Simulated assay, not measured.
Amino acid sequence: MIHTADFFFGTPSLRRAIFDIALVAALWSVSSVGYYEIRDQLGLENGYRDAPLIYSAYYPGFTVLALLLFRHRLRDWQLPAHGVLPVLAVLAMIAVFTLGILPILPDIDLSLAPRNPPEFMFADAMYYVAKSFETLFQQALILTLVLLFHSFGWKTLQVGMLTAALFGLFHLSLIFNGATDFYVARFTIAATCFGAVVPTLLLATRNGATLSYGLHWGFYIGDNIFTHFMLSLPI
């Protein structure tokens, strides 16, 4: 267990943890900045939709980099039992949404949309191909943070409380990007709830990594459907 005195005098493990947290934040930030830089350089209106293949290669590169930088954390992960069926179920969920549900959702009325609407409002199936790889990258960083906090001997519940607070605060920062209050609120609440359960999924649940990815992806599905109906004109 980490002791209070360690916060004042420091230990090698604590210093490494602080460095790793800063590195996670840096990777996440650099990947986001790079996304907009590529979009602007190519003159794209919607990066994922207009250049899905570029971003489908961009985020796996960051994922591999994260796996290499945090291999000292990941190699200690005792992966709970995993099966093929949950993976196929998540892939089927994504396919049903992108190919079957997304095309028939009501069109968004731009007069009802925010002044600077987020790109996912105009997503098509190819948008979510690239988005799936970004989600995989984020899952690698999330797993790193969970293993980092768990390495101090904290219980899963304690780790969940900490990740819930961190994920919630991180998404609360969306307000500085010009997002509407309602947009920020629902993403922050969802991130907080996800942060509370993800340590249990990754550390102590059968098929937990797949469930974590599926839950992460499932939020995008729910929010997209909600947005299309909320911002469409009644028939």
Results as ranks from 00 to 15, higher is better:
L23T: 13
L147V: 00
D40W: 06
T144Y: 06
G47F: 02
P12K: 04
E134D: 11
S173E: 06
L67A: 11
T156R: 09
I54C: 12
L203M: 05
P117F: 00
F187E: 11
V129S: 02
I18E: 02
S56I: 00
P114L: 10
L79S: 12
C193A: 15
Y183F: 15
G153W: 02
A209K: 13
Q158P: 01
S56V: 00
R71M: 01
L145S: 12
L23F: 10
F7K: 06
G168L: 03
L88Q: 02
T163C: 13
P103K: 10
T192A: 13
S13E: 03
S132Y: 01
F7E: 03
G178Y: 00
H216T: 05
V197R: 12
F120P: 13
L211Y: 13
Q158V: 10
S32G: 11
H216G: 09
L105T: 04
V64Q: 13
P52V: 02
H3I: 05
L68T: 08
V90W: 04
V197P: 12
G178T: 01
A209P: 10
L147I: 00
D6A: 15
F19S: 14
L143E: 05
A81D: 14
A5C: 07
P103C: 14
R15C: 12
P114I: 06
A125N: 07
M230D: 07
P52F: 05
A185K: 03
P52H: 01
Q158M: 07
L203Y: 01
L74N: 03
D40Q: 11
A22M: 09
G61M: 03
G100S: 12
L105P: 10
T210W: 14
F182L: 14
A190K: 02
L231R: 01
R15I: 07
H228F: 07
D40C: 07
Y59F: 15
L14V: 01
G222H: 04
M230P: 01
T210P: 15
E134A: 10
S173P: 04
S173I: 01
F226C: 04
V33K: 14
L211S: 07
L157D: 10
A196L: 15
Y58M: 10
F8G: 08
A17L: 15
V198D: 13
H171M: 06
L203I: 02
V87C: 07
M126D: 12
W217H: 11
D40L: 06
A57H: 02
K155L: 12
D107G: 12
E37G: 04
A140D: 08
T200S: 09
P117S: 05
P106Y: 04
N46H: 06
Y183C: 05
L201Q: 00
I235K: 14
R75K: 14
F176T: 08
I189N: 10
A25P: 07
A95D: 04
M121C: 00
F182C: 07
S32Y: 05
S173Q: 11
S173C: 09
Y36L: 14
H150W: 08
C193R: 00
V197T: 11
T227F: 09
F187Q: 11
L174W: 03
F137K: 09
F152N: 03
L85R: 15
F62E: 01
L203W: 05
M121Y: 07
F133K: 12
D181A: 13
G178N: 02
